[in-house]
Each structure stands twice: as structure tokens, then as C-alpha cells.
Amino acid sequence: MTLDLDRPMAPSTPAATAAATDADLVARTRRGDREAADALARRCRRPAYLLALQLLRDPDDALDVAQDALLRLFTTLHRVEPGRPIRPWLSAIVRNRARDLMRRRKVRRAAPLVSDDPETGVELIDHSPGPADHAERAELKARIWRALGTLSEGQREILVLRDYQDLKYDEIAAVLRVPIGTVMSRLHRARKALREVLGSGDGGPSDG
């Protein structure tokens, strides 16, 4: 099935489509339902963008990768098993697109994969209740984000999939194509590495 991606998206989504499950939308999209395809695209673009942003740490690159991944999602939708969750499939596509981009960067300009520069344009939002709590949590979030940038690509990847994306172990295993036990051991190593970075004060300039 091929979708016409040049056609503009519908301006609004009917309530029935908005309430549909991912599996319903996938099934309807595969039957050629344009409204369902629009709803599915709207539903998938946010998690696609956020995962790309967390992996690439650059908003412009993340938007490019997310849009590219959405296009790929729709052209491979016929290969998703009916009733299976769409999220691991989408995450795998985003993750591979992000890896491709990082590899090209490595070859093209030998630039660092991750910038610790606060001017990267990535903005964190905090909704903590009290001012003191707000400041402390915001600071810790920023430190974790910076520390994440110092980890290896594999460690960052698995921490993002679990702790930012909240994927379950079996979903991470599907994305990375590794056994669940490997997910657990890699994740634990990554968490230890993150704690070491935070404990050593390499999490950013405000540690002193």
C-alpha cells in the first residue's frame, strides 16, 4: 500500500479516529483510510521526534530524522504484524535513522556526536511545584541530560529507550534485536556509568 504523502494533512481529526487504538489506526491505514493515516501520523510524530532528539541532541536533526522515520513507517506498515504495538517498530526506525545520521557525521566531518554546549537548542521543561524543589529538580534534570551526552552511544541509547521513552524490556529488546537479559545487563551498566559520571562531577559545569 502506498500513501500519498504529498497531500496536505487534514486540519482536524474526528473524535472517533482520535479515540481509536494504535492497532485500529494501523489496520485502517493499511486498508487505505486517509483519515486514519493522518491520525496515525499525528500520534506517531511526537514520540518519533522526542526519541530522535534524545538520541541526537539536536532539534533540527531530530525533526529531519523524525519526518524521515514517519515516511518510512508508512511505507513499511504492511510488514507490521496485525495487533502488534506500533511503538517498538517506530522506535526501531527512528533509532536506525539516527544511527545512520551519526555515522555520516562521523565520516563527513569527524565532529563529536554529542555536544555538551548548552547552546545546542535543546530546552528542558520543568513543572515541579515549589520554587526550591523546582530549582533542584531542574538542576538534576540538566545534569543528567549533560551526563548522558558523555556516555557511549550504546549506553545513551538504552537509557533513552528505558528512562526517557519508558519502553518495557521486551520492547527495547525488539528495538535493539537482543535478548531481554542483554537489555537488563546493558541497562544496568549504563545506569552505573551515568551514576559514575554524575558522582565524578562530569555532569556539567554546575557541579562544583
Binding site: 535543546v122 530546552e123 528512562d163
Partner: peptide, 12 residues
């Protein structure tokens, strides 16, 4: 760490 990480929000 996990709880703080999970509550992080990004500008979209």
C-alpha cells in the same frame, strides 16, 4: 535518577 529522567519534558 529514573524518576527525574522520566519527568523531563522537552520543547517540541
Amino acid at each position: 535518577l529514573r524518576e527525574v529522567t522520566m519527568s523531563t519534558r522537552f520543547v517540541e
